[in-house]
């Protein structure tokens, strides 16, 4: 990943920081400059709880650049408690135990390494909660 892109998206990737519209209250993740519901530009950053449940899931056997060595890995759409859906990898979970509706929580993990001279990219993944509820 390019360093400036890494820098631009890091608060979303590290802290699950989205945006909340000051006009209509819509929560967005990933963050947006314009509210996707009402179009207002009055949005402020908000860190999301990281709690949610699995909306859908699959397994990647051949990933995009930078992910080949990690395959196969589990991916999911997670419905966050605040409303948005987020695409993410699943981790620390038995593949056979994954199902739609399963509660998950966000953790920060290594996503990829861009070779010996590249940066190590960390970001959100989701796992079954360590503490129930």
């Amino acid at each position: 990943m390019e360093v400036p892109r890494h820098w631009r998206t890091q608060s979303a990737r590290y802290a699950l920081e989205g945006t909340v519209c000051q006009r209509c209250g819509e929560t967005s993740f990933p963050p947006r400059d314009l509210c996707s519901r009402c179009g207002s530009g009055e949005v402020i950053a908000k860190r999301l709880s990281g709690r949610g449940e699995i909306y859908s899931y699959s397994t990647v056997f051949q990933g995009p650049n930078g992910f080949a060595e990690y395959a196969p890995y589990l991916v999911a759409l997670v419905r966050l408690a605040e409303g948005p859906l987020v695409a993410a990898q699943l981790t620390d979970v038995d593949p056979d135990a994954v199902q739609i509706g399963m509660p998950v929580e966000m953790v920060t993990r290594r996503l990829r390494e861009d070779g010996p001279k590249g940066i190590v990219v960390y970001g959100y993944k989701f796992r079954p909660p360590l503490v129930a509820g």
Partner: peptide, 12 residues
Amino acid sequence: DFESQIGLSFVA
């Protein structure tokens, strides 16, 4: 920024 960068492929 938010699909392929987390490891999603088009098939996935």
